[in-house]
């Protein structure tokens, strides 16, 4: 299963866990499964089928531009980070 690092601002959803495991071969499926286990995940991360404004997803230490269709491997490590942007 993929490992998802939960940033402090989201740990209220995971009961304080900073790291959780989830299945899913795409970011969409991964977040859907996370939302089942920890309700609220999807609302925080996805808006209109896109990664929510201001956020970026790092998969295996590379920030993906593939959005919810990004591939997740069995042993992927996922981080939720701020989007690099010059104003929004």
């Amino acid at each position: 299963m993929a490992i998802v690092h939960v940033p402090p601002q989201m740990q209220e959803l995971t009961g304080g866990l900073a790291e959780v495991e989830a299945e899913g071969n795409s970011l969409r499926r991964l977040i859907s499964n996370l939302d089942t286990a920890y309700p609220g995940f999807k609302d925080r991360l996805i808006k209109d089928d896109l990664v929510a404004p201001g956020l970026a997803i790092s998969i295996d230490n590379v920030v993906t531009s593939r959005g919810i269709f990004a591939e997740i491997l069995e042993d992927s490590v996922v981080h939720i980070v701020p989007a690099i942007a010059g104003g929004h």
Partner: peptide, 23 residues
């Protein structure tokens, strides 16, 4: 205020548009 990353929003209006926190 947007609580970033992934923290939703604060409940009270202010001039703070974003609060980022890592630990």
């Amino acid at each position: 205020t947007n609580l970033v990353p992934g923290g939703g929003k604060a409940e009270t209006p202010s001039n703070v548009s974003d609060h980022h926190h890592f630990k």
